[in-house]
Nucleic acid binder design. Structure first.
Lengths: 205, 205
DNA sequence: CACTATTGTGAGCAATAATTCAACTCTCTG
DNA sequence: CAGAGAGTTGAATTATTGCTCACAATAGTG
């Protein structure tokens, strides 16, 4: 593990499609492995192997291991997380419908992303600027939920901001657990109960 | 980092007080160092040094590095289950009181060392034995909650088992997040909202 | 086709970490 | 207090990992 002044630029930029594909495979594998086994367990050799690319190629496009994580982060931010925005903006139905949409969204969308993002935030040593960006994004998501709540007439909760944070996280983690652990209960049952819990909370007594 | 067939048992169990003390010092140091610098940075040599114990001694009582983290985790889980049992047994008041007791319990349990707990959850390599232990404890806790729910007259939920699982996990994870992440909201606010959510869910409309 | 630029390969180096073991010291017991 | 077993030590060994580099393979081009 050499720790000296590390190169900041890759030694090569993809010019042919083939190369772009290689780079892409590496990133995809890294995302998968980091999310699945954590940052430390995701060794560069491991990533290269999973991407079916030689370790040398990996180091053509990424100057070091941290740069891979950084690239994933940049990509995530570039893409934006506007899927949820779409869902929420056009859900003017009942409160239960809106909540159900959120839960469905979480189930569908429960990709590597949430866990990967957490790893990025907690493991990587990044510039303050990047960290702020991550933080801002999290706040945006919660903000979207908060807007929905304050727009809806049925919501009788004391502090909409706190409620938004609470239900956002609750839905995300419960979904994650459902998908990760060996299935104890049916997805439909789970969905119904989760929706019920959140809805009853928001609607109040 | 050898990964071959690793010894599962320590080569020695403490028989004299002196040895028990050594083991204890190692665990304490490990907890401290893991919490402070992360799992990867907490090398066995580092731990031994901090505990003022030779590296050889460390390997007398722990077959490998993972076993240290596992021991810390098991200890934490043991304590948690035991505490919850106490709390729930003697909480015959209102439903809200009982739920509040659960939440308080979770908060207490996490206040020790949130960062260490995070590391345990995210970095520990779970042997089958450890997984079984965790699973067993999880079932015990859910069982305790289920009993409480079915005993309580105010609970109007369809399936008590599912509800127990849902609220147990929800409380645990939300608390975990609260303590691990930089504080966004006050603990009291959080407690109130979480209690409200769970209570409203259980009580129904 | 030949020639060049780009891309891909993987054995192996250097640094660091995990783990072992033979020799030692300390405690206990008869 | 002697012998046996328990506990301790830390230099030496083994394993892992981030990363390099000399070379091979493939694509682009006139």
């Amino acid at each position: 593990m050499p720790s000296a002044d590390r190169r900041l630029q890759p030694r090569r930029k993809p010019r042919q499609v083939r190369a772009e594909l290689t780079r892409e495979r590496i990133l995809a594998s890294a995302a998968h492995i980091f999310a699945e086994h954590g940052y430390a367990a995701g060794t560069t050799n491991h990533i290269a192997e999973h991407a079916r690319v030689s370790i040398g190629s990996l180091y053509q496009y990424f100057p070091n291991k941290d740069a891979i994580l950084a690239a994933l982060l940049v990509r995530h931010i570039d893409r934006g997380t506007w899927m949820q925005a779409d869902e929420l903006d056009m859900s003017p139905g009942s409160l239960e419908t809106a909540v159900r949409a959120m839960v469905r969204d979480a189930i569908d969308n429960h990709s590597d992303d949430p866990r990967l993002l957490r790893i990025m935030v907690e493991e990587a040593k990044f510039s303050q600027e990047l960290l702020d960006t991550i933080d801002r994004h999290g706040k945006i998501r919660v903000g979207q939920v908060r807007d929905l709540l304050s727009r809806h007439p049925d919501v009788t909760v004391a502090d909409v901001g706190v409620a938004a944070e609470l239900i956002q996280f609750t839905i995300e983690m419960n979904t994650h657990k459902l998908m990760a652990a060996p299935r104890t209960i049916a997805v439909e049952t789970f969905e119904t109960e989760l929706v019920t819990m959140v809805t009853r909370y928001l609607r109040g007594p």
